[in-house]
Every structure is written in structure tokens, then in C-alpha cells.
């Protein structure tokens, strides 16, 4: 009788253990998001795009409000693209072209196109927060320094990737993300390095995106400065702000 009870208890608990692990995995991903983006952040980045034929660097400023799922980006240099701006709000992605004084809505069909010629896509900008909610997370490996989490896309989630494998350090700082398509092919590798203290928190400041189907090409995204959890004025996330040539915030 006792042994039967024991078995029953084990039976009931086995799924709980799995669920607990899944919750752990989800928590870790959530914590990484909290660390990197907080609830609001403003930051300045330099993006360096390297290809066999050319390379160039772009500096931009970003305003990110994670809870409201909206952000604003304005290019500071080079001169040719200065003032170009992006606004994501209400699931729409807008782009502003200072030369033509026009804003353009980026259609769904262009979401997978490269962002500013880099190895990041428009989709990367828009879907930043779906990493937690649109995937099922599972811990697949652990060693003394890092945890490996496999995130598989939920069946009906509107996401591009079939699977993302995150490697997170034991201090909760991400080390790398590997992106796989729905057929399981390894498409790109994102590495995080150069951990520095920014506005009181230790975060990686260099993101290296390496597409695996385009040898010789890569994009380095360097975080120059950042502030976290400062409230961002409402007018930043408006289409009127797109048209403002200079970043005044």
C-alpha cells in the first residue's frame, strides 16, 4: 500500500518537476530580457557591418519601452543617413526618410529584409519581446559556468525561427544565441561579449551577429552608453517625433 502511494506520488510529481524546470528556463530567459532591456532604456549604439566587399559603421540612439512594446531609433551618423528614424508602436513599424521628408510603414513582406544593410532584420527589431512569450523553453544542458536553454516556437506563434538555443552564464548574463529555421537548419549565431558596467549594471556591450549562410559577412553591434528605467516622455513614440530632425530627448 505504502509503496503504491509512493509510486502515485512520484507519478504526480514527475510532471511537476518538468514544469518546474521549464519555469526555470522561462525565468532565465525573462531575466536576460530584464537585464538587457529593463522596462525602459535609452542607449547609443555603433553598428559595424563587415562584408567581403565593403564595410561601414552607423551610430544610432534608441529609446525602448518594453512594457508598452514600443521603441524609437534615430540614426546619428553617417551623414548620408543621419536623421533616418524608426518607430515601432501598435505593432506597426514606421521609418522616416529625412531626405524625402516622408515616413513609410514597413510592410509585413519586408520584415525579413536586412535592417540598414546589417545582418539584423526588421523582424529582429519588432519581435524583440516575443522571445519569452512565443517559445517553449527547456533547459538542455548545464555546466559550472553556463546553462543551455532550448526555446522552440509555440505551434501557432507568429515567429520566424523554429528554435533558438540560448547559452546564459551562471551570473545571468547571456553568452550566445543560435537561431534555427523551422527545418532545423542553423541560420545565424549571435555572440555577446565585452561585459561592462552601464548605468549600474553589468551587461555585455558587444553583440556579434554571424550569418552562417553568408561567409565573410558579419555585424558588430556595440553598446556605447545606456541608461535604464528612466521614464521616457510620451511624445517620443509618435509619428510627429519621426519628423523631428534632431534628437532632443
Amino acid at each position: 500500500m505504502l509503496s503504491r502511494c509512493l509510486i502515485l506520488v512520484l507519478f504526480l510529481c514527475a510532471p511537476c518537476i518538468v514544469i518546474a524546470e521549464d519555469m526555470d528556463a522561462k525565468n532565465i530567459i525573462q531575466k536576460v530580457q530584464n537585464l538587457m532591456r529593463s522596462s525602459t532604456s535609452t542607449a547609443r549604439y555603433t553598428m559595424q557591418i563587415q562584408t567581403p566587399d565593403w564595410q561601414r559603421a552607423i551610430t544610432f540612439q534608441s529609446w525602448d519601452e518594453r512594457v508598452e512594446k514600443r521603441f524609437f531609433i534615430r540614426v546619428l551618423s553617417p551623414r548620408k543617413e543621419k536623421g533616418t528614424a524608426w518607430l515601432k508602436s501598435d505593432k506597426n513599424l514606421w521609418m522616416y526618410l529625412p531626405k524625402l521628408e516622408r515616413d513609410i510603414r514597413i510592410p509585413a513582406s519586408m520584415m525579413l529584409s536586412s535592417w540598414m544593410g546589417s545582418d539584423f532584420t526588421n523582424d529582429d527589431l519588432v519581435k524583440m519581446d516575443s522571445v519569452v512569450a512565443d517559445y517553449d523553453h527547456r533547459i538542455t544542458g548545464k555546466n559550472e559556468h553556463s546553462i543551455t536553454i532550448e526555446s522552440t516556437a509555440k505551434p501557432d506563434a507568429p515567429v520566424v525561427w523554429g528554435k533558438i538555443i540560448h547559452v546564459v552564464g551562471d551570473d545571468g548574463i547571456p553568452l550566445s544565441d543560435d537561431y534555427y529555421d523551422e527545418h532545423g537548419a542553423h541560420i545565424r549565431h549571435l555572440a555577446f561579449s565585452e561585459i561592462r558596467v552601464m548605468d549600474g549594471r553589468r551587461i555585455p556591450t558587444l553583440w556579434t551577429m554571424q550569418p552562417l549562410n553568408d561567409i565573410g559577412k558579419k555585424t558588430l553591434l556595440k553598446l556605447e552608453e545606456a541608461t535604464f528605467d528612466k521614464s521616457i516622455p510620451e511624445h517620443v513614440f509618435t509619428r510627429t517625433n519621426l519628423r523631428r530632425e534632431r534628437s532632443r530627448q
Binding site: I49, T51, D53, W54, R56, P78, K80, E81, T84, L97, K99, L100, S114, M116, G117, S118
Partner: peptide, 10 residues
Amino acid sequence: QDRFGALAAD
């Protein structure tokens, strides 16, 4: 994008 990956709009 132009040949050097920079934004080109007209």
C-alpha cells in the same frame, strides 16, 4: 540599399 549597404531612397 546602395552598393555599400547604405540606405538609398528617391
